[in-house]
Design a protein around this nucleic acid. Structure first.
Lengths: 248, 248
DNA sequence: AAATCCTATTTGTCCTACAAATATAATTTT
DNA sequence: AAAATTATATTTGTAGGACAAATAGGATTT
């Protein structure tokens, strides 16, 4: 087992080899992985190196390990690693805008799936959420209601991965609202043009199972973001600076 | 620094503390992180534990480290961790279908962004791809062309994260085509209904900057998947089994 | 002032040791 | 003989020491 660490570290190398083995052998969830000492001998590295590599896979949920019982391949939650990376403060403005774009696209794009799946009870639930939304005027609770509404929609789409993904994006959205100074301008601009489509305006399309109407309504509902993204892409600057304060 | 490892391992605990610190202090890319020994002392754990935790963050791109220069926070590629987890053989059928659904939704949903951004040169490029596609009849190259076309579309959307995401999904799509026995049925069913929309059928809508038409065309282009997803969600079985062969 | 060398620091790797958990084998009890 | 108990061995989790490689920063020489 030579060809060690061509460029990166031994840990990177071992990690890639283990992943490669799992993929190439088409190992399924439950398949056993050799213990740490065996792997260390096989790859001719120290046990620490193997442990670091395995620790990474363990974090992603690719493997599981329990004392004395050894390690097995496991089915990861595909969004688990993603979550740790979604820190708006470390992401570039560009990446954040890209994520915004994905959220908007997903919501518009899943229209036909939503319409196909939605039941009358689902619609009743949505109406309830909207009713609460209208009753309370507080801005902060508004965000919670916004979330409740969209979560319900994704749940109708019957897509847990998408639900997880979009749930992780909520803090990113919040961050844009609170920290991107130029965003508020767009918010007010769109308001002035009175193109605002609220949740309650969307519901009729769901009731009529009108895919195109629903799609247009959602698009208008998310208009602010679409405009903001379009505008930002032109400028395409970075809003990211380094900082060397003492944090720990 | 008590409250050690309530439930998980020390490594999990330290990992979460470091991530927490980075988030709560709003540390930006470039901010310095204490060295391994300091962290070990701070959290009252061995250096190995700290190293494993840091190794995980390093893998995700959350931090970078160079000998003697210490470690700094860095901007991760948000899709880097995702990539390692996307092994169709370990994912459940349900998750794979969810991913299919996301791909389809993204492609339909980014229509307005695409139409807004696309230039005449982009359209010429797409025509070139389609021309090649028509010239060659081989199935295998077809997949490459399929990829080239969609990659170009996402590139027009000017969204690198989405491009990365969908690029990672390509092997998953391939897997569905090759390994989900019931998928071929749908393929042929849709073909029989002659609802097939090819890439060349899509291009006119782009030329006319017709968002709705484009959206419908893309939806039809991906009809197989929509139907397949809808059908599978009804059954919602698992197609995942354990396997204990010797792989290493 | 510039170039060179030296030293201290920090990450990367290897190693040994032991605790905790637990699967398996050995022993005792019924 | 079967069941329950105990003992043993194995494997992961953690700690800590040692050293190599790289290199930032200071000391020395040119």
């Amino acid at each position: 087992m030579n060809n060690k660490a061509k460029n990166g570290t031994l840990v990177d190398w071992v990690e890639s080899l283990i992943i490669k083995t799992i993929k190439e052998n088409e190992m399924k969830s439950g398949a056993e992985i050799p213990n740490e000492m065996e792997l260390a001998e096989k790859y001719e590295v120290g046990r620490n190196v193997v442990r670091e590599a395995l620790s990474r896979l363990r974090m992603l949920g690719i493997i599981e390990s329990r004392t004395r019982r050894g390690m097995v391949v496991s089915e990861p939650n595909v969004m688990y690693g993603f979550q740790k990376v979604l820190n708006p403060h470390t992401l570039s403005r560009e990446t954040i805008l890209n994520l915004l774009g994905m959220r908007v696209s997903l919501e518009i794009g899943c229209a036909s799936i939503v319409i196909n799946n939605i039941t009358d009870e689902d619609i009743e639930e949505l109406k309830l959420i909207v009713a609460k939304e209208n009753a309370i005027k507080s801005q902060k609770i508004d965000i919670e209601m916004e979330r409740a509404f969209h979560t319900k929609i994704y749940r109708v789409a019957n897509n847990q991965v998408m639900l997880d993904f979009l749930d992780l994006l909520i803090p990113v959205f919040k961050f844009v609202n609170e920290n991107f100074e130029d965003f508020d301008k767009f918010n007010q601009l769109v308001k002035r043009q009175s193109r605002i489509v609220r949740h309650k305006d969307i519901i009729p399309y769901l009731e009529n199972r009108d895919i195109k109407g629903y799609q247009l309504a959602v698009e208008d509902h998310l208009r602010v973001y679409l405009e903001y993204i379009a505008d930002s892409q032109k400028k395409n600057k970075r809003q990211n600076h380094t900082d060397k304060k003492l944090h720990f």
